[in-house]
Design a binder for these strands. Structure first.
Lengths: 214, 214
DNA sequence: GAATTAATTAAACGTCCGTTTTATTAATTG
DNA sequence: CAATTAATAAAACGGACGTTTAATTAATTC
């Protein structure tokens, strides 16, 4: 056997990425074999090497593109408005929606860092740090303007990111709550956590506008 | 070669546990081999089978004991006082201290669930759920007494747990902040997040007492 | 329609894995 | 000090792993 009827490089590569994300998210990178991923796609393991030079390179590609998409989504969602509270609202809403829509890819990006080589790890961490810096800047601006109560910008940023990323651990799209309901609750918690100075009605108006814009 | 001079079962078993926690936390369960762990202890791989019947059983033992210790620590720290805000304070302070002191074991317990068999997984999840229920009860009692503002008990509990467990991701004991300083900041964030009804001075008094008691 | 390029299979390579078996020595017991 | 038990080493087992090589067929190009 050799090239199969109807085979197409583009489609095969996309299928490999999908299979890899699903399998690695469920079983972990080290536990998943090239043969398993190939079987999911419906090809032999050797065929994967036409698209990715090594197993680790496949992992690194998945993580890099996930982080680049996250940055791009935030760039597109970032409000023209420079009010720190509005920016914080947009950041949290965008973050939750992005991660809930990509539960499996997020799991891979968060759990498999230790399987990367030094260079690949540095690469991914740089993207992550750049993204997290956005939140720190918002918190610092808000604190400077007297609109937020933030004891320690770095700690608060980490606390918020862990809180809102953690949604993917328990959230299932087909259960009790919708993404918008979850986002609203987490926004309320974030605003209280940061002591955001804005009356309740204003905040609700802004949140609703934020959610409708998506 | 055979039994070595000065060999002792108790010491060897403890050394295996330590080596396993360190190596699995750093490289992941699937990536660590029985031979690596044995080398860290200074024995051959076959010697591990005198203490643990399989690799997975070793993992499960580490996780089970970690969860049992967590429950025991909370039982000991639980305040006689039934004020929900005081209980929340104790819960957060105990949780952070416990996890910071056991960074590696916590990493193992949080990251390697997917490597467990059905039965072992069920076992660990039961322990985890029981522990998390403690926090939900505190939040519900606080909300019922009008002392906390909690929109959704389940969501708030998950948010708080992810926030305070996330400390181990970035905290390094030899850096800028002490455990007590980090705990104080996270307690302040928790109190704001739950809209705890208590004036600042009272809260500080209680937090200080909490910290001094450890 | 021949030549070229793209996509894939089949088979193999050397290595490492979790685990078992067997033998051997150290420590303890009576 | 003989008998027993505890703790280990050494070697092997079958299987799976990531990856490479070579051959083969489908699609495209000229």
């Amino acid at each position: 056997m050799a090239r199969t009827a109807g085979s197409d490089g583009g489609r095969t590569e996309a299928a490999i990425r999908d299979a890899a994300v699903q399998l690695i998210a469920r079983h972990g990178y080290e536990a998943v074999t090239m043969r398993q991923m190939a079987a999911e796609v419906g090809v032999q393991a050797a065929a994967l090497y036409r698209y990715f030079p090594t197993k680790e390179d496949l992992l690194h590609t998945l993580m890099r593109e996930h982080m680049e998409e996250l940055a791009a989504t935030w760039d597109a969602a970032r409000p023209a408005n420079d009010d720190p509270v509005a920016r914080l609202t947009s950041f949290v809403a965008n973050h939750i929606r992005f991660h809930v829509e990509r539960r499996h890819a997020t799991h891979v990006s968060n759990m498999e860092l230790r399987s990367l080589s030094r260079d690949n790890l540095t690469n991914i961490l740089k993207l992550r740090t750049t993204y997290e810096k956005e939140l720190r800047t918002i918190l610092r601006d808000g604190a400077d303007a007297g609109l937020l109560e933030v004891d320690d910008t770095g700690l608060t940023a980490m606390a918020i990111i862990q809180m809102i990323t953690g949604v993917i651990v328990w959230f299932r799209p087909d259960e009790r709550l919708s993404v918008d309901e979850v986002t609203a609750t987490y926004l309320a918690m974030t605003m209280r956590l940061t002591g955001a100075k804005t009356n309740t009605e204003d905040r609700h108006v802004r949140q609703d506008a934020e959610l409708r814009a998506r």
